[in-house]
Design a protein around this nucleic acid. Structure first.
Length: 222
DNA sequence: AACGCGGGGGT
DNA sequence: ACCCCAGCGTT
């Protein structure tokens, strides 16, 4: 068997796992950056299953940024209100106006330009770059941060998401020829296996590489 | 670095 | 009764 780097094994094991256990969501069938942006606004601190019907209604009603920019703000609010975080409905309106005015309705492919769009932060910018434009970019949500902290035994505490060590590891992980698929795989893996509480270490495809597994150190040393 | 936002589902 | 969720903007 060919020797692989650790990061290659992480990629292979995660993607093999993903082939079998991937969740299916409507925004995973498009690379339209507008729709990815809409999905990510809705997924902000909100469960994916809860977003599905809202996303479907929203994208049917406002299929592109030009439809959205013409929309009535009360109508937008009605579609999105039962997602909670009510102030988010302003993001839909402000981002659409900004994209039409500054970018002629096209989402930019540049990180700094994406970050200037109202409501788009580090995570959403990274998600758009990886999923829509296939540009390797470190994408760190709270789940991926937790995974990195565990897997590499960093033992960081507090607000770890933006810490240098976490971002550096994320950079290595997302340096991949299909970073968008890797993001979806990481999201599902950290939601279903490497969960916040009671992770399913027994069925984990990375258990023999993980710092939580004490046997791993023996394997490495032998 | 830390906090508020928020309804809804899981445990 | 908690805890957590594909984060962002502000302090």
């Amino acid at each position: 068997m060919k020797k692989q780097t650790k990061i290659k094994q992480v990629h292979n094991n995660i993607l093999d796992w993903f082939n079998q256990y991937a969740r299916d969501f409507p925004w995973r069938h498009t690379k339209d950056p507008y729709k990815i942006m809409i999905a990510e606004f809705m997924l902000h601190r909100t469960r994916a299953e809860q977003v599905v019907p809202v996303y479907n209604e929203f994208t049917k009603k406002y299929p592109d940024v030009f439809a959205l920019v013409c929309a009535n703000s009360d109508d937008i609010r009605k579609v999105t209100e039962h997602l909670g975080l009510h102030w988010r409905s302003e993001h839909f309106i402000k981002s659409a106006k900004y994209i039409v005015e500054k970018h002629n309705g096209e989402l930019p492919e540049d990180y700094k330009d994406l970050r200037k769009i109202p409501g788009i932060g580090e995570y959403i910018a990274g998600a758009i770059l990886t999923v829509c434009f296939n540009k390797p970019t470190p994408v760190v949500d709270s789940n991926i941060a937790r995974f990195i902290n565990r897997f590499y035994g960093l033992n960081l505490k507090g607000e770890i998401r933006r810490k240098k060590e976490i971002v550096q590891k994320a950079k290595e992980i997302f340096n991949h020829d299909n970073p968008g698929q890797l993001l979806f795989a990481m999201v599902d893996f950290t939601a279903l296996v490497c969960k916040p509480q009671k992770p399913n270490c027994d069925s984990c495809p990375l258990k023999f590489l993980c710092s939580l597994n004490k046997e791993q150190k023996i394997v490495e040393e032998s």
